[in-house]
Amino acid sequence: MTNPTIEKKDTRSGFGAGLYELGLQNKDVVALCADLTGSLKMNAFQDEFPKRFFQMGIAEANMMGMAAGLATAGKIPFTGTFANFSTGRVYDQIRQSIAYSHKNVKICASHAGLTLGEDGATHQILEDIGLMKMLPGMVVINPCDYNQTKDATMAIAEHYGPVYLRFGRPKWPIFTDTKSFQIGKALHMREGKDVTIFATGHLVWNSLEAAKALEEQGISAEVINIHTIKPLDNEAILDAVASTKCVVTAEEHQMNGGLGDSICQLLSRNLPTPVEMVAVNDSFGESGKPSELLDKYGLGVKDVIAAAQRAIARK
């Protein structure tokens, strides 16, 4: 089903490229990394702007506090480590020194979700979106490909306030146009009239593949890319649902606390609608190849297709 000619790159490389561009453009941008410079693709920034790069060692709590201090003094700090160590490990530091103190810190988190693969459940955080969206004032962004991650990295430097930017490890198809990203603005990827699929991160691609397969069955599926989970683009979501009248949500995250959760809350308060959720159901991950894991945990293309069929049947 996957187009073999489409170019693939990891979203973390989009982050690295965006950070480097920002370094060139804005002297207030500084970067901190907790011993994962290569994994986060921060080497280009480190090499070009060594004075603005802070090697933190394996000390994430100190990194978050230090980022808060740098922001206090007027810098725009970007912290880099895996999503697990960017959120759960340092939740209290983020809560008090960054979110409650309203510091202009960009928490940039790689290797989110199941698709980091073989390292297994200790590293595959599936709760980070929920953790971060619960914090008052925190913006939460989960871009879907290289281009969107690069654009998002650059866009968040222009937004004053704390931001959580989540991306991943595997090479993934590049299918969005550059310059199409705007914080908080849902992106229509495909028009359709029978069902709306709201997807975020790597699952946007799976949803587009699912929509193609559904078309062969005579089902017209709309796909909307919700790269910004908070603040949610309420208007775009309600507009779409008003015409299709049934919904699938798709994300590489726990069902609890993720994108689907946010959309269900919006719909139940404004426009009660059948929703089927493609997400991990109260489970930790495990070792395996990214595609095997997505299939085993119900996040594959076939799972999105099945969810769409169920949603339509419930109309």
């Binding site: 808060a68 740098l70 008090q96 103190s101």
Partner: peptide, 21 residues
Amino acid sequence: RIASGSLGQGLSVAAGISQAK
């Protein structure tokens, strides 16, 4: 300049301000 109460965080914040200076 920073919220405090949950202990152990102030020296990290100070280190960030120190680096900025």
